[in-house]
């Protein structure tokens, strides 16, 4: 049975609205780049040893201190030859630690705001 044209139009508009709400369309680096957001917080800094020298290859791990805890992406973020590391996270309170060769340094707490960059120096014994 053919539907009246008006009903088809209403259904088509509904479909377009629902389609716009779907928000999980495939995308790739071959497409025009999306507008990057400024909603994440950046935490960066240097991992240093007891002598203050930069540590290369330390695993830097954040832990959420919010309640309930925020999910933390399980990336491997390692310090570079200059000891520097960089994490991009949702805004919140975190505790960062650096670990290398079975040595884990003391945790450093930071409150990271959206769009802001916080500097946190991490120490290894």
């Amino acid at each position: 049975m053919r539907r009246p044209l008006r009903m088809r139009a209403v259904l088509l508009i509904g479909m377009l609205v629902l389609g716009a709400c779907g928000r999980e369309s495939a995308t790739s680096d071959q497409d025009p780049p999306p507008t990057l957001t400024n909603t994440q917080a950046t935490v960066t800094g240097v991992v240093v040893d007891g002598s203050g020298r930069p540590v290369d290859g330390a695993l830097v791990q954040p832990k959420s201190l919010d309640s309930p805890p925020l999910p933390v992406p399980e990336l491997a973020v390692l310090s570079g030859p200059d000891g520097r590391y960089e994490w991009h996270l949702n805004a919140g309170r975190y505790e960062f630690t650096a670990t290398k060769d079975d040595r884990t340094g003391p945790p450093s707490e930071v409150t990271a705001a959206a769009g802001a960059t916080e500097q946190v120096e991490l120490h290894l014994p």
């Binding site: 680096d29 990057l36 909603t39 994440q40 290859g57 390692l78 991009h88």
Partner: peptide, 30 residues
């Protein structure tokens, strides 16, 4: 400097699947 980053899993002859944050970062892009 090449460093460990993430894990993925083969899902075809030429396709690896992984987490979105392993291929795209909201702050820096692809």
């Amino acid at each position: 400097v090449e460093r460990l980053h993430c894990t993925g899993w083969m899902f075809g002859a030429s396709l690896v699947l992984t987490a979105g944050h392993c291929v795209f970062n909201q702050s820096t892009g692809w």
